[in-house]
């Protein structure tokens, strides 16, 4: 293994990504690279929180990073309860902070 110390992860692996694209998070544009998950794109933009809990309304984001803990649930393109750490980002995705169980609209 190379014992280099890079300034960024992309530099470390010599990444030459394909053209970046845009998604929106709560209405604001976020850039993503092809192949990144929703969570990775959000982390890149410095966003760590995209869910509030059902009981105490506390902020949450990715925790286990491998799809086991379900803390990173977000509403993506209108569908609640999507695991952001597994779901690949796609151009034009609409990602919304998921409040509670994400079904508030159904209960109205």
């Amino acid at each position: 293994m190379r014992r280099t110390r890079a300034r960024t992860p992309a530099e470390l692996v010599g990444a030459a990504p394909e053209t970046e694209f845009q998604l929106t998070f709560d209405g604001r544009p976020v850039r993503a690279l092809p192949g990144q998950t929703i969570a990775a794109a959000l982390w890149s933009a410095g966003i760590l929180t995209w869910r509030t809990t059902r009981v105490h309304g506390r902020p949450r984001g990715a925790f286990c990073g491998i799809g086991a803990c379900y803390d990173c649930l977000a509403t993506v393109n209108g569908r609640p309860n999507q695991r952001a750490c597994l779901l690949p980002a796609a151009p034009g995705d609409t990602v919304m902070t998921q409040e509670g169980d994400g079904h508030a609209e159904l209960e109205r």
């Binding site: 692996v13 010599g14 394909e18 092809p34 192949g35 990144q36």
Partner: peptide, 9 residues
């Protein structure tokens, strides 16, 4: 890294 990220190393 996912393919689209083009990691050469």
């Amino acid at each position: 890294p996912a393919e689209g990220l083009g990691a050469t190393r």
